[in-house]
């Protein structure tokens, strides 16, 4: 464990809390992509199967349970909550996210640490997480005004994986740990946020409304 890793996981947790607060307090999920949330449920389920097969960890296990529970709750709210589901921008959330699942599955089938059920699904979840934000970013581009909580949510989500990159650099030098799959997927994932980060920081510094071109 190192500070980058701890900060990264806390940032990830914070992003989910921000989203839950937004949905619960404003009773609205406007500007949030249900497709991205669906993909996150898939990411967590396929990644945390080892909850049942590997020894529990005082640190990882609670996080895994919270990530699973919150991501499923968010999808439940957006799909079935009578008030919240009305505010879902169904017609703007148009990204064909099913087209992301198959390539990640095929890639995981061929590139994985070990050709076992758990490892292939784990690789699938790593690849899928890297692209899961795409529907959300596309939805933000079509949103006329992005509310602060949504902007903060996406920013924290991007920041968490960027912090993981620092964690991997630290672990490479301090613990000689090499992890090609999460490294490359994490780089791609963080790169996808690049322009969002640019406009988010620009709007924050000029104290103006966040707007993506």
């Amino acid at each position: 464990m190192n500070a980058f890793r701890l900060l990264a996981d806390l940032t990830h947790l914070l992003s989910i809390i921000i989203l839950l607060v937004k949905i619960r307090t404003t009773k609205s999920c406007a500007g949030i992509s249900l497709k991205t949330q669906d993909l996150y449920v898939l990411v967590f389920i396929s990644r945390y199967l080892d909850l049942f097969t590997r020894p529990l960890s005082l640190y990882n296990t609670p996080f895994k349970l919270v990530f699973l529970a919150t991501s499923i709750t968010i999808v439940y709210y957006m799909r079935y909550h009578k008030v919240v589901k009305q505010t879902y921008n169904k017609d703007s959330d148009t990204f064909k996210h099913y087209f992301l699942i198959l390539p990640c599955a095929v890639l995981a089938f061929f590139i994985n640490p070990k050709f076992t059920f758990i490892e292939v699904l784990w690789s699938f979840s790593i690849y899928l997480e890297a692209v899961a934000i795409l529907p959300q970013l596309v939805l933000l581009q079509s949103s006329s005004n992005i509310d602060n909580l949504t902007g903060n949510y996406v920013f924290m989500l991007g920041a968490y994986r960027a912090l993981y990159l620092l964690n991997w650099i630290y672990r490479f030098f301090a613990e000689d740990v090499v992890r090609w799959i999460p490294w490359i997927a994490g780089l791609v994932q963080t790169a996808l946020y690049a322009d969002f980060f640019y406009y988010y920081i620009k709007s924050w510094r000029n104290n103006e409304r966040l707007k993506l071109p």
Partner: peptide, 10 residues
């Protein structure tokens, strides 16, 4: 491909 199997990260 990878040195260690156990995924100790989230």
């Amino acid at each position: 491909m990878e040195k260690e199997r156990v995924h100790d990260e989230l």
